[in-house]
Simulated scan of single mutants.
Amino acid sequence: MTDAATDTELLATAQRWSSRALHWLHTRYRTGQGDLPPDATVDFADPDSAYKPLGEAALAASLVLRDGVAGARDLEAARDLMDLCWRQLHGGDLLYERQLRHMLLTDPVETYAHFARVGYRHQPLEDLLDSFTRLRAPNAVELLPNRRLAVANARRVIGLGDRPDWTSLSAATWLGALPEPWAVDWSTGYSITHTVFHLTDWGARPEGLPAAVRDYLRDWLPVWVDIWLEVGQWDLVGELLIVDACVGAPVCDSATWDRLAAVQHPDGLTPRDTDPVEDDPAEAFRDHEHTAVVAVIAGTATLSRVLDASSATR
């Protein structure tokens, strides 16, 4: 971004895209489409199809509330969405029972962090998680490096007392190696984005990125964005725009935002890619909820970072 006019254009597009996605999500949860399956218990084997989408919706809403750059209507929708998700988790009891019964699982702590970030607390769960700092087993779970960062950041957000070695955790990731940028593929692209999300706590701590990683990203983000725009991977492009906000003043121009805004449907749905959207509303929600979450976070993080930068230069 080079001037105030460009900033204004980008911010307007980001805010509009993000707000529409938020209200699309909120409406779906208000009508019960995001509810947990009726037979869901703490023992469900596949969190991706059970409550991971619910946790992601809560993540998006929590960041809207944390950053506070949205309008009153969006803030109200985000708070109601948090309440709806928290009720689905029985006020945190489901997370507590799942973590108590399955101590090596990490999805309860990661999901709980989204709620704790904005004041939804469950003391028995926090006591249980705190006790894990004195055990070897939970800390020895074999995870991908960016997944280990996710757990470390979740525990940081909750306020647990352990102090991970962020430098070592970062260096163990694909991104931390500063690899040849042309080697990136679709799966690695998502690994890159999540490494940045957790090191910076979704943009709140840009200083969490090592300087060499920040420079590498600022050099190559526009290139990667162009590649995934060309093949119509809208969801991944949205995640890369979140990364752009997490490294400081965004380096991607407003044309990228215009492309994503152009594929958004009038009701707020943003397709994950160029494949046709299913006519069945329930199927469309399952297929494209994640992209709505990405849109909410991308717009929120970008508005927050640009406005922070503007305030700092006054």
Rank of each mutant, 00 (worst) to 15 (best):
G91W: 09
P37G: 07
L143R: 15
L54M: 11
A152R: 14
R73F: 08
L75Y: 01
A78G: 05
P138G: 03
R66D: 10
F44E: 02
L75R: 08
V151P: 11
Y112G: 05
M82H: 11
V118A: 13
D107K: 05
E76I: 10
P145M: 14
P108E: 00
D46W: 13
R66N: 12
V109A: 11
R98Q: 04
A58I: 14
A116R: 15
L100K: 15
A72C: 00
P124I: 06
T31W: 09
N146E: 15
K52R: 04
V69T: 13
M82F: 08
G92K: 11
S49Y: 03
A140W: 13
Y51D: 02
Y51E: 02
N139E: 02
L94H: 13
A70V: 00
P38K: 04
D48I: 02
H102Y: 06
G159R: 13
R66F: 04
V141C: 11
L149F: 08
L65S: 11
R98I: 00
C85M: 08
C85V: 12
V42Y: 11
R156W: 04
L143F: 03
T133Q: 15
R66S: 14
C85I: 07
A172V: 12
D39R: 01
G161H: 13
L94T: 04
A78H: 00
D80T: 13
I158P: 15
A77Q: 01
L149R: 07
D93F: 10
P145Q: 14
D127Y: 14
A171D: 09
E126K: 07
A45D: 06
R156C: 01
L135W: 05
A152F: 09
E97Q: 15
